[in-house]
Design a protein around this nucleic acid. Structure first.
Lengths: 218, 218
DNA sequence: CGATAATTTGACCGATTGGTAAACATTACA
DNA sequence: TGTAATGTTTACCAATCGGTCAAATTATCG
């Protein structure tokens, strides 16, 4: 019988694990550029170096591949935010959060683009995750930030929009990489652009969030 | 003869102008969500309320539609940056630039997403525009900002990354709208979110760029 | 070894893709 | 009004799409 598709078996053989990894790696290449609708199984199969029916032996549908990919990416993608520590020093926490996010944009640009593609299309496959686990995590960290402002450790500001702005500025270097390179030109588009970005963003956020001397009407 | 396609005629009839407008409007709907590869002429035709061959009478290929759309969007999209005035007061210039960009994200989210989709795919259709006109415009404005820092009007910072960060933070509210809504929840995801964002971003950039008292070693 | 299960592939299917041909309908204008 | 140009539609095409199937191949293990 050939009925028991890979997914059904209890124990995953080494070969299964390896092939699924190989497929998801190729799928990430393709989905991150063309989005779900714009990607084809044939493309993924070619990148993976396998036949199309062979892909479909491990993942029954195109959606299944995409779903598996999204699930995996979503988890690791939120790790920097999870590491955000309430006990830590606000300035250094924000600083290292920016650093971490920027490192991810540099080291895992495909993952960032996969996620961006999904958002642009209205998150048809992950809306529940956004409204559930993601919102919950952000709510939690927003509360931490709010406590910092209340304690006078950082300037008063909307914690949600602070998080959004860190997300957007850092992911920009992955999602809009072509634009960044084009605008910076050959001279400044080298590997150093991430260091420059880090310096700028740290300055912006740290100084922008410093507690300001109240011009109190006395 | 039916050979002279619409594009070939010198004078554009009223009906041509209207239909082309109607098509591009529909194309914007579709392309902005699914990207170039993920969109189909049939989808656009249905949204436009016209038959597929009728679309192809006005635009010979799917690429021609996309190209026409991109050209139009790219121009209006850069208007806020063009309005950036070297003579003006730095603080109010930056403030109004952020406002304008945020208003565009609110009023023209499809245009923002169309552009974002193109970037994610590596800008296969507009790389020349990025390296040419766009880079030139940004270079020019970056020089303005640099002059401000040299004059001590704003804190010393990398003008390119400053522009990038304004782009990314503002466009985020168009491109990642689903995520923003999901995280903010029903209570705070209303129309007011743009006002909240404006307040936060203005504070961040204005305070973050204030000239800091030098802790000079005296 | 033998046999059973797991893996891989070529051939194929119906649906959809971008695009065409030509007949038909409408408009502009002398 | 007539007629030529413009605009629209039906029918269609080859290529590609997501996915199936049965046969062939390979790994596993007693």
């Amino acid at each position: 019988m050939t009925i028991p598709r890979a997914a059904k078996t209890q124990r995953r053989t080494r070969i299964q694990e390896a092939k699924e990894e190989q497929i998801l790696e190729a799928a990430l290449d393709v989905f991150s550029v063309s989005g779900f609708r714009g990607s084809t199984i044939d493309q993924i199969a070619e990148v993976a170096g396998m036949s199309k029916p062979n892909l479909l032996y491990y993942f029954r549908t195109k959606e299944a591949m995409h779903r598996a990919l999204i699930d995996r990416v979503l988890f690791t993608w939120l790790e920097p935010l999870r590491a955000f520590d309430a006990e830590g020093n606000p300035e250094s926490e924000i600083r290292s959060y920016i650093r971490r996010k920027l490192e991810m944009a540099r080291d895992f640009p495909r993952e960032s683009r996969l996620f961006a593609n999904e958002m642009l299309q209205g998150a048809p496959h992950v809306e529940d995750e956004l409204k559930g686990p993601l919102k919950q995590l952000v709510d939690e960290k927003a509360e931490v930030i709010r406590s910092w402002t209340k304690a006078g450790k950082i300037a008063k500001c909307d914690p949600y929009h602070l998080i959004f702005s860190i997300w957007s500025t850092t992911q920009h270097y992955a999602d809009f990489d072509v634009q960044v390179r084009a605008v910076l030109g050959q001279e400044h588009a080298g590997a150093g652009r991430f260091e420059d970005a880090a310096r700028f963003l740290e300055q912006l956020f740290i100084d922008g969030l410093k507690v300001k001397p109240v011009p109190d009407a006395s």
